[in-house]
Amino acid sequence: MSRSYRNGSNQAATVVAVVADVTAFILGLWILFSLLDANRANDLVNFVHDAARWLGSWSHDLFTMDVEWLRTVLNYGLPALVYLFIGHALAGRIRRG
Results as ranks from 00 to 15, higher is better:
Asn10Gly: 01
Ala24Asn: 02
Phe33Arg: 01
Glu68Ala: 13
Thr23Asp: 10
Ser9Met: 12
Asp37Tyr: 09
Ala13Asn: 04
Thr14Ala: 12
Leu36Tyr: 14
Trp54Met: 04
Ser2Arg: 14
Asn75Ala: 01
Leu78Gln: 08
Met1Thr: 07
Asn7His: 10
Leu81Met: 12
Arg53Cys: 06
Leu44Glu: 05
Trp30Tyr: 15
Asp37Met: 03
Phe85Arg: 06
Asp37Gln: 13
Ala13Met: 09
Phe63Val: 01
Val18Gly: 08
Ser34Lys: 08
Phe33Gln: 11
Phe25Asp: 04
Ala24Lys: 02
Ala52Cys: 07
Asp43Ser: 14
Gly92Gln: 13
Ile31Trp: 11
Arg95Ala: 11
Thr72Met: 11
Pro79Phe: 04
Val19Ile: 12
Val19Phe: 15
Ala51Ser: 08
Asn75Lys: 02
Arg53Pro: 02
Arg53Ala: 00
Val18Gln: 11
Asn46Leu: 01
Val45Tyr: 13
Leu74Thr: 02
Asp21Glu: 06
Trp30Phe: 09
His60Met: 05
Leu55Pro: 09
Thr72Leu: 08
Ser59Asn: 15
Leu27Phe: 12
Val16Asp: 04
Val18Asp: 10
Ala51Arg: 07
His60Cys: 02
Phe85Ile: 02
Ala41Cys: 07
Val18Pro: 14
Ser4Glu: 10
Thr72Pro: 15
Arg96Trp: 12
Arg93Ala: 15
Asn39Cys: 03
Ala13Ser: 11
Leu44Asp: 04
Phe33Pro: 08
His60Ile: 01
Ile94Asp: 10
Val22Glu: 08
Val73Glu: 07
Leu35Lys: 10
Ser57Arg: 14
Pro79Glu: 03
Tyr5Ser: 07
Ala13Glu: 11
Asn42Ile: 00
Val15His: 11
Val82Ala: 06
Ser57Asp: 11
Asn10Lys: 03
Ala13Phe: 12
Met1Ala: 14
Ser9Trp: 04
Ala41Leu: 03
Tyr76Asn: 01
Ala38Ser: 07
Tyr83Val: 01
Phe47Val: 09
Asn46Val: 00
Ala12Ile: 04
Asn46Trp: 01
Ala89Pro: 13
Phe33Met: 08
Glu68Val: 06
Ser34Asn: 13
Leu29Trp: 06
Ile86Gln: 13
Trp30Met: 02
Asp50Val: 00
Leu55Cys: 01
Ser9Tyr: 08
Leu36Asp: 08
Trp54Phe: 15
Val82Arg: 03
Asp66Cys: 05
Val15Thr: 10
Tyr76Lys: 02
Leu36Gly: 06
Ser59Trp: 14
Leu74Phe: 13
Leu29Asn: 07
Phe63Pro: 11
Ile94His: 14
Val82Lys: 06
His49Ala: 03
Leu78Tyr: 13
Trp30Asn: 15
Arg53Phe: 05
Arg6Val: 02
Arg53Tyr: 09
Ser2Thr: 06
Leu32Thr: 13
Tyr83His: 04
Gly92Ser: 05
Leu44Ser: 05
Ser59Ile: 01
Ser57Val: 00
Leu84Ala: 06
Asn39His: 06
Val73Asn: 14
Tyr76His: 04
Asn75Thr: 02
His60Gln: 10
Leu90Trp: 13
Phe47Asp: 10
Leu81Ala: 07
Pro79Lys: 00
Val82Asp: 05
Val48Gly: 03
Ala91Tyr: 12
Gly97Cys: 04
Leu90Cys: 11
Ala41Phe: 07
Ala80Thr: 04
Pro79His: 04
Ile31Val: 07
Ala41Pro: 08
Ser34Trp: 10
Phe33Leu: 11
Trp30Asp: 06
Glu68Cys: 01
Tyr83Glu: 01
